[in-house]
Design a protein around this nucleic acid. Structure first.
Lengths: 156, 156
DNA sequence: ATCGCTGCAAAAATTTTGCAGGTAA
DNA sequence: TTACCTGCAAAATTTTTGCAGCGAT
């Protein structure tokens, strides 16, 4: 009944999610290397959409190349372990896919300080189906993000 | 009661919108030049989100530089005469703002052939307000785009 | 005549790719 | 060992900026 989850890094690693991800990688003949483990850990700790550069900067020992971050993210994206979000500034952001229940979700972003809050409310299913059938479309989904001024930014 | 407007270039220029735009520009000491008029006409004819490169390519005599398209679009964006949309591929797209009633709207994009249909259905107002107040946000809006397979692409 | 605008060119920022060597399995 | 992965470097894309000259008002 609560539309908010966690605003940011909860502190505790999402070890289950990360080991699930590494298992999935291994099962498809992909290797678990230092950079990949690091990237997964960064995404597991900061649980909000991050740019490739932010991911690189958050790596403990700056241990890999930006190109490797891009390549790893591509792989994780292709395997469905990571999801892309766009906040309207043209820079791609990525988030670790947790359990399936939260795979599809949205965000509320402060247009002033960029704070990000995860939102679980969603576009109404029946209306989406209406839109699909009215237009003869199938396999329809959506991307939805909210923008506004957070409490800190509109109170000053 | 109909969620679709026009799929693409309707053929007839939106002369009212374009002259309103040029008036607005002039009133703020901006000049109506060949490239600007051309860009406005292109946007008035192709009434769906276009990338800067597409706009350049659609200009009758290829009469201007890509940098000029970028600069003009920036200006039009700042003046609220043009709106930006993101279809999740990292390339910015722009559409001429028609009347205020259609200023805010969404699209249904075919993930296979990129066909774009304009959608007037919107995220429910009361739910948006709930999300805002639950999180203490103000001046909240949203970006919403739908993706799926169009009739042509899922029937084959 | 003035100030803004344009083209051209260069640069900045984001993302992709080639290749030789290194490493997980 | 073998196939995959990484770093480095270069390139491809998208977007921004500097500057001298042109052009709308």
């Amino acid at each position: 009944m609560n539309s908010i989850r966690k605003q940011c890094c909860g502190g505790h690693q999402r070890t289950e999610d990360i080991s699930a991800a590494t298992d999935r990688l291994r099962s498809r003949d992909h290797k678990i290397t230092g950079p990949r483990r690091g990237i997964l850990e960064v995404l597991g700790k900061h649980r909000h959409p991050m740019t490739n550069k932010e991911i690189l900067a958050a790596l403990p020992t700056q241990e890999c190349d930006l190109a490797t971050v891009y390549r790893s993210i591509h792989l994780l994206l292709k395997m469905g372990l990571v999801q892309r979000f766009d906040f309207g500034d043209g820079i791609a952001r990525f988030e670790l896919v947790m359990d399936k229940a939260h795979r599809h979700h949205h965000h509320l972003v402060c247009t002033h300080c960029s704070k990000v809050i995860e939102i679980v409310d969603c576009f109404p299913e029946e209306l989406e189906q209406k839109i699909a059938s009215r237009n003869g479309f199938k396999s329809i989904t959506h991307r939805l993000e909210f923008f506004g001024l957070c409490p800190d930014c509109h109170s000053t």
